[in-house]
Design a protein around this nucleic acid. Structure first.
Lengths: 206, 206
DNA sequence: CGGTTTCGCTACCTCAAGTATCGATACCAA
DNA sequence: TTGGTATCGATACTTGAGGTAGCGAAACCG
């Protein structure tokens, strides 16, 4: 639940007593994505990840309460903040879609995402973590950038992420550029990408 | 791989020697969906399913090689053929979307789908089964009904199923009617639901 | 140097998928 | 009725992975 933040030595204010944590979070993240990319989510065991990172398994469990939360943190690190750029509304939305698609296409990220998502299906606690730590920041950012109500933004996220993950899960490969383009062509007009001219297809329907 | 078909006594031609299988497939399917609905995919163990169906676990493993394939068969049984009805193109497509959404909303079906889909992420063999036994029939039916190329039909399926499953996976609840309606409003125009008038948004882009 | 915390290590627990085996049972054919 | 064959339920087992417990050693502070 409450992750103790690992800070760099210099910026730590009022350092707690005891031996400080070694700065291997980034190494563990890299090992996680690499293992998931090569072996798939289920076979990327914590033992393997620990070994690949040159770290004891117990060290990983000291920092993350479960494999699922490790992967969530890992994805959070891999995604970073949404670059909400673009002149008009349409550009902003299409760039967001393309950015999500690109991130999911990075080696290991899509598999990790789909894998942790699978775990969440039968684990309400992990579902909460996934929703609060991964989905919410992007939901808030998109809501403010687009000026859409929460429900619509959530629908937008479901469509984009769901489609990309389903494709990845069924084929094992990320979505090709042409299909990403079609996704943009489908989503943007529906969400009123025409920047003030047509005002979208079904604005205010919720 | 090759499931021995369980037939009713009367229609069996050239019955193989030995004790015939008891006709409990339907009971096992019901127990599977019920267990998955109540406990989630991971906690719906084969032991529990067997107990709920009043059947020995070994009997289940005699008929299905893995939990995943049991669930795939279960889903196949739950879905049945697509009812491709509707006068025009738009009606046909929207009814297909609504039908998929309704099926996924049935208790246990969505959870089972999401669960087996998760397993498939790190199990290429199961992915193949899922794709060949669940996706292909609907892909073929939709392709012939809509007259769209394979790539476009696959994209359609990815959007509809992916969106519905992602919503279910994140919230634990099936998508509400209003959102299903929005899904229809987004998908149908994009795929040329205007039945000959506008010919869709991006036909022939692939 | 003493206090505190993390480190790696080893051993362990739990749970679930899947396998092996065995006597009993249900069907068919001779 | 009897033998052949394949499934049945029951029990016990193997394997693998998530996660925990407890140890002495090491790193940092005052």
């Amino acid at each position: 639940m409450s992750y103790r933040v690992t800070m760099t030595r210099a910026t730590a204010s009022a350092r707690p007593p005891g031996r400080p944590r070694s700065g291997v979070n980034a190494v563990v993240f890299a090992a996680t994505l690499s293992a998931v990319h090569e072996l798939g989510y289920a076979r990327a065991t914590v033992d393997r990840i620990a070994a690949a990172a040159g770290v004891a398994k117990t060290t990983i469990y000291r920092r993350w309460p479960s494999k699922g939360e490790l992967v969530v943190d890992c994805l959070l690190d891999a995604f970073g903040p949404v670059p909400l750029e673009g002149a008009g509304r349409a550009e902003l939305m299409s760039s967001a879609v393309r950015w999500i698609a690109a991130k999911i296409s990075e080696p290991g990220v899509g598999d990790a995402f789909a894998g942790v998502f699978s775990d969440a299906v039968s684990d309400p606690a992990l579902r909460k973590v996934l929703s609060a730590r991964l989905q919410e920041p992007y939901r808030v950012a998109l809501r403010e950038a687009l000026g859409e109500p929460d429900g619509r933004v959530l629908f937008f996220i479901d469509v984009v992420v769901g489609t990309l993950l389903h494709r990845m899960g069924m084929t094992g490969e990320p979505m090709v550029e042409a299909d990403v383009a079609e996704l943009v062509e489908m989503v943007v007009p529906h969400f009123g990408g025409d920047a003030g001219t047509a005002e979208g297809v079904s604005r205010g329907s919720r």
